[in-house]
């Protein structure tokens, strides 16, 4: 029972097939997706462009219908009006009613949730403050920059104080400052107890923000779990060693063990494929009477994991990256 309560968003075998072209050729955009997003977490939905991220989000938001499989929001089947009332959504590259001012724009969405009068005014003030757009309340959206549109878009997604916020590529097309602002905003939303589900193809953002991630490639889920666990799982951490005064014989032996060796004056930098190689390398250093300057284990990254997944689990998908 507690699992059901904790599960904010869940899918089982969710699939979508489109008919394309004159002859109605079938193309499967999402294939048997199983997701489970828990209350209060930031969940990253990752994959390269065209992996099926937006298609999945559109199914969850009731914009397109799944071909097979099931999905629930707050324990209710997708499309249910009651669960939509507890949801906030920012689409990818949003296009809004550009003839409206920032204030009119948020008023319109507030009205759709039955918010009116003083309560709505207060909520709009709070949101414009939160996204740093108070100065643009009387400016028409057509005069907004992309970053401003993204921020006011997030404000509309939060108008109903949702429990789950779904953001489709919220950082795409933004400059580094804009991306940092959105990242900070996501963290603030998490602090206020909201569940955030966002898609991205920018892995660094996900690594910084997410509690858990799912990686999707060509419509198939290839990994899902805690970021730290996924990075550790099967990862071969490399180790960086810097040695001083290693003779030619020692250097030759080191080259046999290391992935990469760079000689800079009297110092040698070697990248070892794993920590298991450290012992033999120390033997070489001792034998050559050289000095160990530093020994640094290199942490794996989500990007390493991503590339590994593509190479190992789905060889046929390599071209997707």
């Amino acid at each position: 029972m507690s699992m059901i309560v904790n599960s904010i968003l869940k899918t089982e075998g969710l699939s979508k097939t489109f008919k394309v072209g004159f002859w109605g050729r079938s193309v499967t955009a999402v294939h048997g997706l199983d997701l489970d997003v828990h209350k209060g977490e930031v969940f990253g939905f990752l994959g390269p462009n065209g992996a099926g991220k937006t298609t999945t989000i559109k199914m969850l938001m009731g914009l397109i219908y799944p071909t097979s499989g099931q999905a629930w929001l707050f324990g209710r089947p997708i499309g249910d009006q009651e669960s939509k009332a507890r949801l906030g959504f920012l689409p990818e590259s949003p296009y809004f009613y550009d003839y409206l001012t920032g204030l009119e724009f948020l008023q319109f969405y507030g009205h759709l949730f039955g918010l009116r009068g003083v309560a709505l005014g207060k909520r709009i003030d709070e949101l414009l403050e939160l996204v740093g757009m108070s100065h643009a309340r009387h400016l028409q959206l057509r005069k907004f920059s992309k970053g401003m549109l993204q921020r006011v878009g997030i404000a509309q997604a939060l108008i109903n104080d949702p429990e789950l916020v779904v953001l489709d590529e919220p950082m795409s097309g933004l400059d580094p400052v804009g991306r940092k602002e959105i990242r900070d905003l996501i963290l603030r939303l998490k602090e206020s107890g909201k569940t955030i589900f966002f898609s991205s193809h920018i892995l660094h953002d996900a690594e910084v923000l997410c509690d858990r991630v799912a990686i999707i490639l060509k419509g198939r889920q290839v990994a899902c779990g805690r970021v730290s666990e996924l990075i550790d799982e099967g990862a071969t951490h490399s180790v960086e060693v810097v040695v001083e005064g290693l003779g030619p014989e020692g250097l030759a032996r080191l080259r046999q063990l290391a992935d990469r060796v760079i000689v800079q004056g009297t110092q040698v930098l070697a990248v070892l494929p794993s920590s298991q190689h450290v012992g033999p390398v120390l033997e070489i250093i001792r034998g050559a009477r050289a000095t160990l300057v530093s020994l640094t284990p290199q942490k794996g990254s989500l990007e390493d994991l991503f590339i590994r997944e593509v190479k190992n689990k789905q060889p046929e998908l390599r071209e997707a990256v």
């Binding site: 914009l63 009332a85 959504f89 689409p91």
Partner: peptide, 12 residues
């Protein structure tokens, strides 16, 4: 213009 995305995802 995809403006419909933010409407259909609301409880309407």
């Amino acid at each position: 213009r995809k403006t419909i995305y933010t409407i259909v995802s609301k409880p309407i």
